[in-house]
Amino acid sequence: MKNIVIGRYIPGNSFLYRMDPRTKIIALIVLMVAVFMIPREAFEMMFVGLGLILILLLIGKISIKRVYLGLRPLMFLLLFTFVFQILFNKTGPELQAWTLNYSFLNIAVIVAIVVFWMYTKRFIKAKFIYLILMIIAIITVLNQLTLGPIFATRQLVVHEDALMIGFFIMMRLIIIVTLSTVLTLSTKPTDLNLGLEAVMKPLKYLRINTEEMAMIISISLRYIPTLLDEANKIMLAQASRGVDFSEGKLKDKVMQIISLLVPMFIISFKRSDELANAMEARCFVPGATRTRLHQLFWSRLDTISLVTSIIILIGSIAVRVVT
């Protein structure tokens, strides 16, 4: 538990690591806007975007495996948007049509397939591919098998636009998530915090105290490992008193969580009280001016990176204007 890394920072050495966190955050925003600027009609441009990202990963020495790990939780969302588009987008020329035959026996076979999938998926490593295989199997069954009396038939029509837009949205999500993963992989949480504070400075004019927010984030970062440790200790203490955290019905689970949460709350309040005392005793005054040990330095690398990302933004705006 002690070694949980927040923000998934992976130490490394490349130009991405040497960049000022402010640059990285601003460039991320600029590039995200650029991705959203690309119109649907020019969806081939997404390949250019993907190519640029691959180049970034390559010269930034970010392992593609790490980026994939960042994308993995998103797989189901991607699949869902794609399936959604295919089912409901009915514009553009037809590409392919399947006849789906519904009969009681067909439905029985499908139920069997789903049950089989539910029971076997825990043994399969590539869960995502297994899910896609199941969906394909269901469609094939409906299309090919005509067992028993058929009470309804439907057409599954795939339109060109559905495929295109589904693909387009998928690419958009992939690019955005990859870009943010690159940011969190290459920036220490503390640097990220400093960068965010600097970038959000204009919010001061809206009377939002960014320095205090940065202090809050930095203290949370510092106390996450301590609190995880504490939670671990409480869980062990409760386990030694007979609480079983791994099994039980929903009602038992709720009780188990309460037996963890209540002491955690009390301890955290006590901790924050003592921490507040310690901070005040060391002359901390909320909102007062402070000098900073960590200062950010702008280098030529930052100028180059920022100019590059702005050029990409202008490029995508140009594509939008032309199409």
Partner: peptide, 26 residues
């Protein structure tokens, strides 16, 4: 409690905390 008075994310940051509050130059 040694844990509840450690403000900085690292040792360096923690020693710096009081100095930052006193506005000591970097």
């Amino acid at each position: 409690n040694p844990d509840n008075q450690f403000v900085g994310v690292t040792v360096r940051d923690d020693i710096a905390f009081g100095l930052e509050n006193l506005q000591v130059p970097r």
